[in-house]
Design a binder for these strands. Structure first.
Length: 699
RNA sequence: GACUGCUUAGCUCAGUUGGCUAGAGCGUCACAUUGACAUUGUGAAGGUCGGGGGUUCAAGUCCCUCAGCAGUCACCA
């Protein structure tokens, strides 16, 4: 044995060895209890980051359960990640001076496909480097033909049950990315804006002053609203206002949602470009003139057409000011909705989209949680999950991006009706004609992700699905509780009438030393693969877990990884000591009473440790279990027992050495889920390179 | 504004149902040593457990309150 543990070449050899042995090739064995985890599919649009390294929790569970005699399956999958990937790809295009508009739909799709295939290859290699015991033979991709078929079936079922419908309403639209988003994907941004007080002329003479942050939407106004009990305006309700610049007549109406204290208490209503105004227009049966296009430019105003929104605002103000209709302008803090991808302001625009009627699904999902059919760890997230179900609103699943699963819905132009067909229909299912046209849109990525646990297992085989579903644990970051976990429960139960997983285990985010979330744009990321190259995968893995609390955010200083690298070396050297001592001459002499006592003490402590270890593992206290072994191996076994027994061992007392060896090997097994490489490497030193620690059960 | 966390050693964090002198890793200081390991060993210093109040024989742990930080949601004309 080398004096130092050298992870680099050893890890490479062991990864290949494990894979060759097929330890983690899942199969159906009805004699054994199944334990399955579906890997949250990484987006196939870039390399791994530390967030992915947190999946080490899953590897710990899988290896532990395997060594407890379960039949395990850790399913590897990758996500096409619709808009995310298209966004990343467009950035690549931009570097080459191109844009998505330079290609037709099929070409663009094919180009992104190639890009994604390349990334998939990279990610697989990186996960191997981390020692993940995934089943590499059953990889799934969200765009696999049979997965898409499942997604289509689900859409069909939802459609047939009238849980999916098409509606024309306002959507959050990014004019830069060229797609709408669901409410969940919208980001808030605080902005130091301005509040403009505009004087709207009354038909009967005089003015009513409205306060607005968006003067440029004046052209789309259909009413001025005041509170029904506002004494200042009571006499004006029902009066008419003449919109400046376009001389359009609109009414003054009463609306109890108007806040009398805000601004002047009079609000302009622009239904096509404001969510609340849209609702008002529907109850008052008002029209909603669209004055901003999907290209982000003004239209149908007759005044500022073709200008972008900001330019139109300035131009409009200039014109109003010339007419002395700008009363005053105040600084005003406001929160604007921005695109979570490109950061640009989102435009509420009216568009027809597919929606999932969420209430029945969310109510059912909530019942599953409250009935304890799915338990959440850490427990505190249970409440959050229940609230998520309470607050869920209908889900817009239409996206105007090329990269995704095309929605299998067809429009009958003659009957003006939609129908769903999982295969391209030979004729229109409504009118039997030939004019049915497929929806251009693709599904929200999360729509396919929501089906991931059953879509993957069902497409492997009915046996696999039957045996491994519901999966045992869904381990993922708490930040995707709402977009992913909640939706998996809703759609999963709808489609399978079972929960998709029995337990949700949530991990926190890895932050930098300043406590800031790591992100590429902030440049504060630690590259996990760089750490693996420097200190070994075991060191990184253990550092992510050690001294943390499950579900809390963690900070990962490089020092900590170094510390764990040192621990790996300690493990190695304990083995080296025992191994080299075995070579020395063995004399079977009786141990003296002091040494006998020490051995008994060792055995007793070992027993206690094993018991504690399993208790903590059972409670998902992974950090605690790791610390137990760390403390015992290093500070008890190495620092105390070895030192105490050294003299006896040197004089050839075999009982002492074999007792140490026994305790050591048991600890290796317990440590293996955390630090698979070094434990396996030492195991093989003692048992041969064709043997594996994985084949043994943890006592 | 609502909900959920967090605030414990210089730094990063544990502390499970309240119970013996409050722990770990890293760092610091002193000493030891090349005999498995300097990616080492032994020992030490260092904390009024965010402030205040309460319950209890006993509170870092439970309750109230205040402050700071973080996250999620709602509002935002």
């Amino acid at each position: 044995m080398e004096k130092k543990y050298t992870p680099l070449e050893i890890e490479k050899r062991l990864s290949t060895f494990w894979e060759k042995k097929g330890f983690f090739h899942a199969s159906v064995d009805r004699e054994k209890q199944p334990f399955s985890i579906i890997l949250p599919p990484p987006n196939a649009n870039g390399a791994m980051h530390l967030g992915h390294a947190m999946f080490v929790y899953e590897d710990i569970m899988i290896r532990y359960q395997k060594m407890q005699g379960k039949q395990v399956f850790w399913l590897l999958g990758l996500d096409h990640a619709g808009i995310e990937t298209q966004f990343v790809f467009e950035k690549h295009l931009k570097k080459q001076g191109k844009s998505r508009f330079d290609y037709d739909r099929d070409t663009l799709y094919q180009m992104i496909w190639d890009f994604v295939m390349q990334n998939k290859h990279v990610i697989r290699g990186q996960m191997r480097q981390l020692g993940f015991s995934l089943d590499w033979t059953k990889e799934k991709f969200t765009l696999d033909e049979n997965v898409v078929a499942v997604v289509y079936q689900t859409f069909q079922d939802l459609f047939d049950r009238q849980l999916v419908y098409r509606a024309h309403r306002l959507v959050n639209y990014c004019t830069h990315c060229g797609t709408s988003f669901s409410d969940i994907e919208v980001a808030d941004k605080e902005n130091e804006g301005l509040l403009y007080y505009l004087k709207y002329p009354l038909k009967t003479g005089g003015f009513i002053t409205v306060a607005t942050t968006r003067p440029e939407t004046l052209y789309g106004d259909v009413a001025v609203m005041v509170h029904p009990q506002d004494k200042r305006y009571l006499h004006l309700i029902g009066e008419r206002v003449i919109l400046p610049l376009i001389h359009k007549e609109i009414p003054i109406i009463a609306n109890e949602h108007v806040d009398r204290k805000f601004g002047t208490g009079a609000v302009k209503a622009t239904p096509a470009h404001d969510f609340e105004d849209f609702a008002v227009a529907q109850t008052h049966k008002l029209s909603y003139p669209v004055i901003i296009g999907f290209d982000g430019k003004m239209q149908n105003t007759g005044v500022v057409d073709g200008l972008r929104v900001n330019a139109a605002r300035e131009e409009t103000l200039k014109k109003l000011d010339a007419l002395h209709l700008v009363d005053k302008i105040q600084p005003h803090k406001l929160v604007i909705k921005v695109c979570y991808r490109c950061g640009r302001t989102l435009e509420p625009l009216p568009k027809e989209q597919w929606y999932i009627k969420i209430r029945p699904l969310a109510d059912q999902a909530k019942r599953l949680i409250t009935a304890g059919q799915i338990s959440v760890y850490p427990k505190r997230f249970t409440k959050q999950l229940i609230r998520i179900f309470d607050d869920f609103i209908d889900w817009n699943i239409s996206r105007q991006v090329v990269w995704g699963i095309r929605i299998p819905a067809y429009f009958c132009a003659s009957q003006k009706k939609w129908f769903v067909s999982q295969k391209p229909p030979s004729k229109c299912q409504i009118c039997a004609g030939q004019d049915a046209k497929q929806d251009e849109d693709t599904f929200d990525t999360w729509f396919s992700s929501a089906q991931w646990p059953f879509a993957t297992l069902q497409t492997i085989s009915p046996e696999f699905y039957q045996y491994y579903y519901p999966t045992s644990v869904m381990e993922t970051g708490y930040e995707i509780l709402r977009p992913w976990v909640a939706r998996m429960i809703m759609i999963g139960y709808f489609s399978t009438k079972q929960v998709p997983f029995r337990k949700v285990f949530l991990h926190g985010m890895v932050r930098d030393k300043q406590g800031v979330k790591m992100s590429k744009s902030k440049g504060n990321v630690i590259d996990p693969l760089k750490m693996v190259a420097l200190y070994g995968a075991d060191a990184l893995r253990a550092a992510l877990i050690f001294g943390t609390k499950e579900g809390n955010d963690t900070v990962l200083p490089e020092d900590k990884i170094v510390g764990m690298r040192n621990f790996a070396n300690k493990i190695w050297n304990i083995g080296r000591y025992i191994k080299s001592s075995q070579k020395s001459k063995i004399k079977s002499q009786k141990l003296d009473s002091t040494n006998l006592k020490i051995l008994q003490q060792l055995q007793k402590e070992q027993k206690q440790l094993e018991k504690k270890y399993h208790t903590e593992m059972g409670k998902y206290h992974f950090a605690k279990a790791l610390e137990l072994i760390y403390q015992f191996l290093w500070h008890q076994l190495a620092d105390y027992y070895i030192e105490q027994l050294k003299e006896a061992i040197r004089s050839g007392k075999i009982e002492a050495l074999s007792a140490l060896k026994k305790a050591y090997l048991e600890n290796l097994k317990m440590l293996h889920p955390y630090m698979p490489f070094v434990t396996e490497a030492v195991w093989q030193v003692f048992h041969g390179e064709d043997k594996s620690i994985i084949e043994n059960s943890i006592s």
